[in-house]
Design a protein around this nucleic acid. Structure first.
Length: 489
RNA sequence: GCCCCCAUCGUCUAGGGGCCCAGGACGGGGCCCUCUCAAGGCCCAAACAGCGGUUCGAGUCCGCUUGGGGGCACCA
């Protein structure tokens, strides 16, 4: 495939969502696969909705996912500026061209009048649309009014009859009657272009070959086709991605669903996912498969895999429900796939007391237990605490009294004290022999030791854990446990 | 209301006329492994929305119905 030029063009109006991450990902994959360029363009033409900080979160989120752009606001590029507010004269120039061609017109209607027109139309059960009040004004007079500083917008002069056919890569040709289309605003009264004009102009000027965008753009797609045609340009390939539904698959995520996901330790925002201990590898694998698939079996993918295997043909146009359980699964998969020293580095922020050398010993025994990196403290916190504080109830195995438990613990203690060290090889055989001798189950004997040493009933494997903690500390903790049991028994 | 899009197990999906009494994965159930919890292995339940066509033959093509979604702004 020839190198593509693709762009991800979000508006800085809120948090960076999963769906944005997915759109950006597909753009990135196609760019890397074909040796093309991935461009980040900020569509900030609606200054009323601008949310400070959203742009920073956006860039942080993309970079965290590993989606580095080749051209964009902070890295520059041959088509700068990459902020649309920096390109207002460009859009005005193209709008003027359309006016001169008779395919756009100045409109002086006030918001007030438009609102009244809309209401009247709705009362008559008509589809709201611009009534054409300024459509046929004398061009000379309109120009004079503009020169006089009269407040105005520029509207597209939609043909009254005929139809237009636009092509989506996933859905094929889409034909719409022009009569169904409106004289949409191209330039607002503040002089800035709206999306419909700005995006088409920028895509053309920036040499964009493929446009991935959400399917919410499908309804305005015919308008975009008209604009492109009016300028005589060759349209890029359009790929409208399916929308993401709430986990139940019934409707899109609502405020309530978003809150529920947070309650559950999940989130639809990329940055939150990072904070919750998800890995970029897991998140990328997960979102890649929401609307795309490779074949009837493969599903574990790293970024290099995806770059190699991604294809537009395997994109699915139907909506996909967000499945957080599957994110947990993929995250676990990728955590386990991480090299030990890398995993040690990744969990260090969650275990600030832990030194890297010890974390490298711990990583292999907790890796298959981690769903998120954030789980590390519950599995490995006891390695780094001075003392553990088990409860007598936990220390006493089912069907035994605390006194009986203490007796078993004493036997364990004397065995451990007699050992040169508590490696798996040295500690397990004599302790297994003890199990035989007492006639208890391995679970009962090792259970006492586990709680004594780790302070918890659920832990990484006992012998591996003891080996890491070291004989001295193990002895100390078992003694303490015996004290607890005898005191109460 | 009008316009557009979508439709295979609960969920993500494979399938692009015979290879499908529909395959994989998550989740669920069972078994195995086992010092706890996981991970892993094996097995089970679970779907072509409905109705009409086209065809020797339809999950796959066409139409309608139903359901879901998006849009109808001087927002993107």
């Amino acid at each position: 495939m020839t190198p593509v030029r693709v762009r991800f063009a979000p508006s800085p109006t809120g948090r960076t969502h999963l769906a944005s991450g997915r759109t950006a990902l597909y753009n990135y994959l196609l760019a890397r696969q074909t040796g093309g360029q991935f461009i980040l363009r900020i569509e900030d033409t609606d200054q009323k909705r601008y949310v400070p900080g959203s742009e920073q979160e956006l860039m942080d989120s993309l970079r965290w996912l590993g989606l580095e752009w080749d051209e964009g606001p902070d890295v520059g590029g041959p088509y700068a500026p990459y902020y649309q507010t920096g390109r207002r004269e460009i859009y005005q120039q193209y709008a003027r061209q359309l006016i001169e061609q008779g395919q756009a017109f100045y409109c002086f209607c006030t918001p007030d009048r438009l609102e009244k027109v809309r209401q009247a139309q709705q009362q008559r059960k008509e589809t709201p649309h611009y009534d054409g009040f300024c459509r046929n004004l004398d061009p000379g007079e309109a120009a004079r009014r503009v020169a006089n500083g009269e407040r105005h917008v520029v509207r597209f002069k939609m043909p009254k009859d005929g139809s237009i056919t636009v092509r989506d890569r996933l859905r094929g040709d889409i034909t719409v009657e022009n009569a169904m289309l409106d004289d949409s605003v191209l330039i607002k009264s503040d002089g800035l272009a709206v999306y419909h004009l700005a995006a088409m102009v920028d895509d053309q000027l920036m040499g964009i070959t493929h446009v991935f965008r959400g399917s919410e753009w499908l309804s305005t797609f015919p308008l975009h086709g008209h604009i492109i045609r009016a300028f005589g340009w060759t349209p890029p390939e359009f790929v409208h991605l399916s929308i993401l539904l709430k986990p139940s698959g019934k409707g899109k995520m609502s405020k309530r669903d978003t809150a529920a996901a947070m309650q559950d330790g999940h989130s639809i925002y990329i940055k939150d996912l990072r904070d919750l201990g998800y890995t970029p590898e897991g998140v990328v694998n997960w979102i890649a498969l929401m609307g795309w698939s490779y074949d009837d079996a493969a599903e574990f993918f790293t970024m290099p895999d995806l770059i190699e295997k991604f294809s537009i043909e395997h994109l699915n146009p139907s909506p996909a429900a967000i499945n957080f359980t599957k994110l947990d699964y993929f995250n676990g998969l990728h955590i386990r796939a991480l090299p030990v020293d890398e995993l040690a580095r990744r969990i260090q922020p969650y275990l600030p007391e832990g030194d890297l050398a010890t974390l490298q010993k711990i990583a292999p025994i907790i890796r298959e237990r981690l769903v998120t990196l954030d789980d590390a403290p519950q599995w490995a916190g006891f390695f780094f605490r001075e003392t553990v504080t088990p409860s007598v109830a936990d220390l006493t195995p089912k069907g035994m009294t605390p006194a009986e438990g203490a007796a078993v613990a004493r036997k364990c203690l004397s065995i451990i004290e007699s050992l040169p060290n508590v490696s798996h090889e040295t500690a397990e055989p004599p302790l297994r022999a003890l199990v035989e001798e007492t006639g208890l189950s391995a679970g009962q004997v090792f259970g006492i030791l586990r709680v004594a040493v780790t302070g918890q009933t659920v832990s990484p494997p006992l012998f591996e854990s003891m080996a890491i903690i070291g004989k001295e500390k193990v002895v100390e903790r078992v003694r303490q446990a015996i004290g607890l049991l005898e005191q109460l028994g």
